[in-house]
């Protein structure tokens, strides 16, 4: 109990410091690097043990609190979906079906993670999605964020926050130049669930086809909206089960660490 109040007070202090510094953005190559308050909060936390401000008990106390804090994010995301729900019914088959392409990440990243990099359960957390806020919520709920899966999704989340926009800009620019894809499918692919990544990815597509700017932007925005609407459920009911199954296939043995609700 005393430990919990200490953790809350520390968290309050970290929020105050982090938010007072505020967002810092700077240009790097094709994209913008965003340093967000949440990142400062995380970094401050990393220094707390060496400053002897937290002990092992406090760390254990803080773990389940992450899952409860994440629920507010989920609620906030939900309230931005409702007003846009009707757009699903207006979207064409290509726009809807390409949402399943978001699962392509599993077949792309998981083999590399498990077979090549010999990663453990961190791979499950990092590979089932592009690890945005909804994915944090899912992993927090199913495995707990202090689990191996939690480290995976948290590491990938931070990577995306820092380098997602730059990487998407470079990647999209490269794919446009290969000429393999028509600009419309590329524009649809830009909407993956993160606004800054969408903007960065769309840039090169629009630059290559300036006469189609309005059309391409509309497709990207619709796809982005769809990803926001279906992302959580897509990950929960398809992404995680497929990743778990494929992980078992690669490891060739039953998984010891089955999902368990974090709040049990």
């Amino acid at each position: 109990m005393r430990s919990e109040w200490k953790v809350h007070l520390l968290a309050l202090g970290m929020v105050i410091i982090a938010e007072s510094i505020g967002t810092i953005r700077f240009q790097l190559g094709p994209g913008t690097v965003l340093l967000l308050p949440m990142l400062y909060a995380l970094v401050i936390g990393m220094f707390l043990p060496s400053l002897r401000l937290v002990n092992n008990e406090d760390m254990e106390t803080a773990s389940p609190l992450i899952g409860f804090a994440v629920m507010f994010l989920t609620a906030k995301m939900g309230t931005s979906i409702g007003p846009n729900l009707s757009s699903i019914f207006k979207a064409g088959p290509a726009l809807i079906l390409q949402e399943f392409g978001n699962l392509g990440t599993i077949f792309f990243a998981l083999p590399v993670a498990v077979l090549l990099l010999r990663m453990g359960r961190e791979a499950v957390g990092a590979c089932f999605s592009i690890s945005r806020e909804g994915s944090l919520a899912i992993v927090a709920d199913l495995y707990g964020l202090d689990s191996a899966e939690g480290r995976g999704v948290m590491g990938a989340y931070i990577t995306g926050t820092l380098f997602g926009a730059i990487f998407n800009g470079l990647m999209s620019g490269f794919l446009v130049n290969t000429g393999l894809f028509h600009p419309i499918p590329l524009a649809m692919a830009c909407g993956t669930g993160s606004a800054s990544m969408m903007a960065a990815a769309l840039g090169p597509v629009v630059a290559a086809y300036p006469e189609m700017t309005t059309e391409l932007t509309a497709y990207a925005a619709s796809s982005q909206l769809l990803s926001n609407v279906d992302g959580l459920y897509m990950s929960l009911f398809l992404g995680i089960p497929i990743t778990e199954w494929l992980y078992r296939v690669f490891k060739g043995k039953p998984v010891a660490n089955e999902p368990h609700p974090a709040h049990d």
């Binding site: 970290m14 929020v15 909060a41 995380l42 936390g45 992450i66």
Partner: peptide
Amino acid sequence: TPVLAYTGIS
């Protein structure tokens, strides 16, 4: 930010 603050502590 609170999510990452608790994460930072743990």
